[in-house]
Amino acid sequence: MTRESEPNAPAVAAVDVRRTYELGGEPVHALDGVSLTLPAGSFTAVMGPSGSGKSTLMNVLGCLDTPDAGTVELGGQRIAELSGRERARLRGREIGFVFQTFNLMPRLSAAENVTLPMLFAPTVEGRRERARTLLARVGLEDRVDHAPSELSGGQRQRVAIARALANDPTLILADEPTGNLDTATGDRIMSLFEELHAEGATILMVTHEPNTAAYADRIVHVLDGRIETIEDLGSGDPAGASSDDSVASAGGDA
């Protein structure tokens, strides 16, 4: 969006990140030494089968979870060194989440949902105006005061994207953003991500679908808590990439 970013300066840098859970008394290595750098303005897709550690990676990069070992730097700050309160504030300012199930507040209108991140980041001025601008940006200028229940799936995801942009974040984290949408709607949502990418936003997207992943500059394949391969798609031409069978077959459990 409006953020000025130097080409290839890292927006987020994770080094040797480990995260282990106890599950039924057994340790599960959700992340087992992951190092990943997201240059500013990059569009990265993460693919992998269920339980491969995609979600944990997203949670760690999104400041929802803290690594047991290794470092994550976001907006120049090491998240392990922050208090819970500071982490929450950093998350609100620097991260924009887009979820598979949209996760809008059911009782708030579209505009109020977009305003929500600004409420928790007290410095933002002119919230109402900004919410309108962002809703117009995602093509929902005529749905500002609608409740989520009055919107279609694609429209809800657009509201969610507008909400993710509210605090002009360093990184947009999208978790299966088209997973609950039909193909045509999903394509339109991906076009929107593509536009944001073109405007300079840094995006990390978890997906099962090779077609969706093909919108990215590169695809990170994770398996058993490790990065298996990083597939570079160059400038990310969705038309060319989706016709490439090798990418589709690398799509894990898609």
Partner: peptide, 14 residues
């Protein structure tokens, strides 16, 4: 909803 608010930057105190 609590999860959503925390994801968009709500602190425990909020």
């Amino acid at each position: 909803e609590i999860g959503i608010m925390k994801a968009v930057g709500a602190t425990n105190r909020d």
